[in-house]
Design a protein around this nucleic acid. Structure first.
Length: 866
DNA sequence: ACCTATCTGATGGCTG
DNA sequence: CAGCCATCAGAT
């Protein structure tokens, strides 16, 4: 057994680091640039010609295949793809013609001709297994006078570095003593020496892919250090956290920022480092992270502060890991999928490569070389979502769902690129030895198990094995936790397979297979719903793999699920040709909602009666405070409460209303008072930035958003992009994936917004209410009480524009930004004073606003009673 | 550089 | 200039 710690190609060597007991050993191997062809495709003449080629290093017969090993990557590429047409600019007018490779000329298909030497070696060395990495966590501070872009170009000196072991018993930090190259060389070399001495193979940095790793590599190059970055596995803890947390985060609060401080706050309750008064006094309004040079330059206590700040960030990471266990799970996943645990190992395409290639090779199967196409791939149809059939607050709604629907479908229909039937009629009788996807007509051979089902069955088997092992071990022990991680790793990997098959960038891409997976899902859930309705149950909603039913008791639903599994599916699946021993479709009775309100497709809130047979805790009674020990929280899907791009005010109001609905509040006046309180707050009180900001991420660089309108003008870019450009104009750079926090200061005619940092308490409160806070809650109320008239008079509060004179135009603008005329909206003209509202003290504002709100509340109460 | 379905909000054209 | 529709973007 070879325990592989690391492996990379260095020139013409494949360097593998292996752990043997407590020793590290280095293997120096030849990197293999190979592909396979079918032995039957290779005639004697061509084989002889190849043998004579100096570029071919080896040719080996392996079963039905011939393995051809080439001198280098360039040669292999030319043999696989031929030479592309190239414009030769040096010789004007001349163009080099495209030249197909000898394999292309003969129409010989190549297989696995894009696999890199590390993956190739891991695939061909069944003895090799990915070692559990020893983890170190690090952070570095660079010269704050440089922009991020400059720093990533290697122009910013590294000022300080911190490093810690996972258990924090080892901690190391260093800072420049002089502003010289020699000093920077000393601390960077020190960092690597410490990491190596501690035996860290894997180094985790927060946002490392987008900053630290690039900076380090550029500085190493610039300073000419004798350090090889490739000797370590670099893993971006932030990217890892984001991927793993996608499935488990609940409220919108956690989704606003991926900053280390924000994640630390939500995960371990460890907050931001307070800015010491000395710093605030000397550099008002600046964050510690933006002052690295200044703190260093000030020396003494300030320089120590810089180092403490750096080290604090380092230590947050192992603490987050102790809470989440995400890195340990990832390491297990890498072990299971035979990929190295660095940032690239996070990509599902690589994980599937790592799992599938060896498994297929052992069964004599090879995959076609991955084609590189610029063409847009045709989209394919996905899941079925039923339009909600109920209005109002429904009682006793039962939910059934399929266990791991897509993997089960792949098993049941024996779906795999190589089992896919060619020339099978899309309808009519199904020939013996085939099954068919009823909605796409795509058929699959059932004679030999497909490689994809084999892989999935293996994963499911291993998952079960580890779950059983975990159950036998004393709970909470490291062994039990490790067994649970294995079980979870196989689940994660198995669930990502369908997505990889649907991705044009993967070697397993097959559009018709992917579409048949989703469409078999559509067929199954629709058949289930029809069968239920025939038995008198009413389907009220369903999404992809679930159906929501009314009009049946718990016992009846249980009986229905049993009947589906024992009779319905076996008979349906036999009719489409699936073999009995392949059938893996299983319906489960997942839960029942005591109360549920479905606002739209994919948007609902409900409270459980039971979950997987376990009786749920009740909601707090009306008027009773929420106590997590005794009460359930409602399950909320898709609504603004769950969304990081909604304002906090919108989420709070929506949550308050949902909590009341779920505990049975029926008096509409109670809901109204929530609205009124919120409106009064929005209109008249101080609004901290955290309550009013919207957060959206950039899916590309800001400049890439610009385009022309159909009429040829420059089109407006989305508000968050405009703000990103304001931020960039102020000297900070924002790239793809950056999150922009912003506040709308005038939404009366188009959107005018500022960045959250520029916010000084002034925003367009009309816009905030009319567009951000009120509608999400109103949609829930309208769904819950559809027969009420929800013309509350609260939906539009911005005063109408009257034909303004030149003079008045200026005032109108001030109005939109300020709040004076809000008092008009609240119905008290006496308070509608256009004098500068911003200058008023917060106390005065609250008092005035309070009075205005009170009169309004009375008025509503009266209208309500009528 | 794992999938699609779906909602909501902003923009921009067109219409009456 | 409100209302309708199409399109894009982001989040789930």
């Amino acid at each position: 057994m070879i325990e592989v710690v690391n492996a990379f190609v260095d020139g013409n060597a494949l360097l593998v680091t292996e752990r043997v007991g407590s020793e590290m050993r280095k293997l120096r191997l030849r990197p293999e640039y190979s592909f396979f062809v079918r032995a039957s495709d290779l005639d004697e003449d061509f084989a002889a010609m190849l043998r004579g080629s100096r570029a071919l290093l080896a040719m080996k017969r392996e079963g039905d295949w011939v393995r051809l090993c080439w001198a280098d990557e360039w040669t292999r590429k030319a043999m696989v793809r031929g030479r592309k047409a190239q414009k030769n600019w040096s010789r004007a007018g001349e163009e080099e013609k495209a030249e197909p490779s000898p394999f292309q000329q003969r129409g010989i298909q190549t297989f696995e001709g894009d696999v890199d030497p590390v993956c190739r070696w891991l695939t061909d060395t069944p003895d090799a297994r990915i070692a559990r990495a020893r983890r170190g966590y690090g952070d570095l501070e660079t010269d704050s006078r440089c922009t991020i872009v400059e720093a990533k170009q290697g122009k910013a000196r590294v000022v300080a570095i911190g490093l810690s072991s996972e258990d924090e018993t080892f901690q190391w930090k260093d800072v420049l003593r002089e502003w010289t190259d020699a000093e920077e060389r000393r601390i960077i070399e020190g960092f690597f020496a410490q990491a190596t001495q501690c035996g860290f193979d894997q180094l985790l940095f927060w946002n490392g892919e987008d900053f630290d790793f690039e900076v380090l590599s550029k500085r190493i190059e610039r300073l000419g250090l004798d350090v090889d970055m490739r000797m370590k596995l670099w893993l971006d803890h932030m990217v890892l956290f984001r991927r793993m947390n996608l499935n488990s985060s609940d409220s919108g609060a956690e989704k606003q920022s991926m900053a280390l401080q924000a994640i630390a706050q939500s995960q371990i309750g460890e907050g931001k480092e307070e800015i010491p008064p000395e710093v605030a006094a000397r550099w008002p309004g600046r964050s510690l992270g933006s002052l690295t040079y200044e703190l260093w330059e000030a020396g003494g206590w300030f320089r120590d502060l810089l180092v403490r700040y750096c080290m604090k960030d380092v230590l947050l990471m192992p603490r987050i890991e102790r809470k989440t266990g995400f890195v340990a799970l990832f390491d297990t996943l890498c072990d299971a999928c035979r990929v190295l645990p660095d940032s690239r190992g996070l990509l599902p395409t690589r994980q599937m490569d790592g799992f599938m290639l060896p498994l297929a090779a052992a069964r004599g199967h090879r995959f076609p070389t991955r084609e590189w196409t610029d063409e847009e791939s045709k989209p394919f149809a996905g899941a079925f979502v039923m339009a909600p059939k109920i209005r109002g607050i429904a009682r006793e709604v039962h939910v059934v769902d399929f266990a791991s629907l897509y993997p089960s479908i792949i098993l049941t229909w024996n779906m795999s690129p190589e089992t896919k039937a060619r020339d099978l009629p899309v309808n009519g009788p199904i020939p013996e030895g085939y099954c068919r996807s009823p909605k796409t007509g795509t058929g699959f051979s059932t004679a030999v198990d497909g490689i994809l089902p084999i892989a999935l069955r293996e994963m499911i088997r291993l998952r079960k094995e580890w779950s059983e092992k975990a159950a036998k071990l004393p709970p909470g022990t490291p062994e039990a936790k490790e067994a649970q991680r294995w079980s979870m790793a196989y689940k994660v990997a198995a669930n990502s397979f369908y997505g990889v098959v649907g991705s044009p960038f993967s070697r397993f891409y097959d559009r018709s297979v992917a579409e048949s997976v989703t469409q078999n899902g559509v067929w199954l859930i629709q058949e289930t719903i029809s069968a239920a309705e025939e038995r008198g149950m009413r389907a009220v909603y369903g999404d992809t793999d679930s159906a929501f039913f009314q009009g049946a008791s718990q016992t009846e639903v249980e009986a229905f699920v049993k009947w589906c599994n024992e009779e319905l599916y076996p008979s349906l699946l036999a009719k489409v040709g699936c073999r009995k021993e392949h059938v893996a479709i299983k319906l489960a009775y997942e839960k029942a909602f005591e109360r549920i309100v479905i606002v739209e497709k994919k948007r609902y809130a409900g409270v459980f009666r039971h979950y997987k047979g376990t009786l749920a805790k009740p909601m707090p009674a009306i008027g009773e405070a929420f106590d997590p020990a005794r009460h359930s929280r409602p399950e909320i899907k898709g609504l603004e409460f769950k969304r990081g791009d909604a304002t906090v005010l919108a989420r709070q109001l929506q949550e308050a209303v949902i909590m009341d609905m779920m505990r049975g509040v029926e008096r509409l006046a109670d809901y109204r008072s929530h609205l009124e309180r919120a409106l009064a707050h929005v209109c008249t009180e101080d609004l901290p930035i955290g309550e009013v900001q919207q957060v959206k991420s950039l899916s590309k660089r800001p400049k890439d958003y610009h385009r022309k309108t159909p009429t040829g003008k420059d089109a407006e870019v989305p508000p968050h992009v405009k703000v990103a450009e304001r931020i960039e104009a102020a000297g900070k750079s924002l790239g793809e994936g950056a999150r922009v926090a912003y506040v709308v200061v005038d939404g009366s005619d188009g959107i005018e917004a500022i960045s959250a940092e520029e916010y000084r308490g002034e925003c367009d409160r009309y816009y905030l209410w009319e567009k951000l806070v009120y509608p999400p809650t109103m949609r829930v109320l309208e769904a819950a009480f559809p027969d009420e008239d929800w013309q509350t008079g609260l939906e539009k509060i911005r005063p109408k524009k009257q034909k303004p004179t030149a003079d008045q135009r200026a005032v109108a603008k001030a109005d939109a930004v300020g709040q004076a005329s809000l008092f008009t909206a609240l119905g008290d003209p006496a308070l509608a004073n256009p004098a500068p509202p911003v200058a008023a003290s917060s106390e005065a504002k609250t008092t005035e606003g309070g009075a205005a709100v009170l009169s309004q509340e009375l008025e509503w109460e009266m209208r309500w009673r009528e």
